[in-house]
Amino acid sequence: MNIPVNPPKVESPHLPLEFSVKQESIKITGFWMFLVSDMLIFASLFSVFAVYRSHIVFGPTPNQIFHYAPTLLETLLLLTSSFTVGMAIYAMRNDRQKAMMTWLVVTLMMGAAFVTTEIHEFVGDVSHGITWHVSSFLSGFFILVGTHGAHVSFGIVWAVTLLFQLSRRGLTPVTTRKLYTFSLYWHFLDIVWVFIFTFVYLYGKIT
């Protein structure tokens, strides 16, 4: 397959670069469709968790295993990274590639810190015998939070490839479209985390 490296011609110069070519802007709409289907994956995992969160059997209760300091740190990291990726898109709109890449690197570092904190928590749990075999609550918990963590990890790998491409090709209708969809993905993961923080961790503290 022959992949053109030359950027496509700008069709609508009055629009932001990522929307300026019809073929590329259609892919942004397509990415929204992916996000909707991904939201349904998380909805089903949330409903499984909602149903099984009281099924503890002989395992620990939510309150016994959740540590609120690291969870709050993870929330702060993800909220801030959502802001920095928003700033990256803002810089991209102003045609400032250097600033854009800096904001994106900051985002990635916070994403990496988030994943590290989460893995640290999970490893700690497992070393105390708290695994997803123990109870339905723990199965639901690890699958829901783990799926989110896997999404964040994938996002980091994706954005690293985008950074490489951006440094080689600069801001074109194609690279800006890719970065724009990445920002949608990242904000989406932040929204999912807000619900995990609320419905898994804070709810665990209430009862």
């Binding site: 904000h187 989406f188 807000v194 619900f195």
Partner: peptide
């Protein structure tokens, strides 16, 4: 409810929900 408000904020402000050709 607070989480829903926050999701709406993210969608409206950061995700540019209504941007399209």
């Amino acid at each position: 409810g607070l989480a829903v408000i926050q999701a709406a904020l993210q969608l409206g402000i950061f995700m540019h929900l209504r941007e399209s050709r």
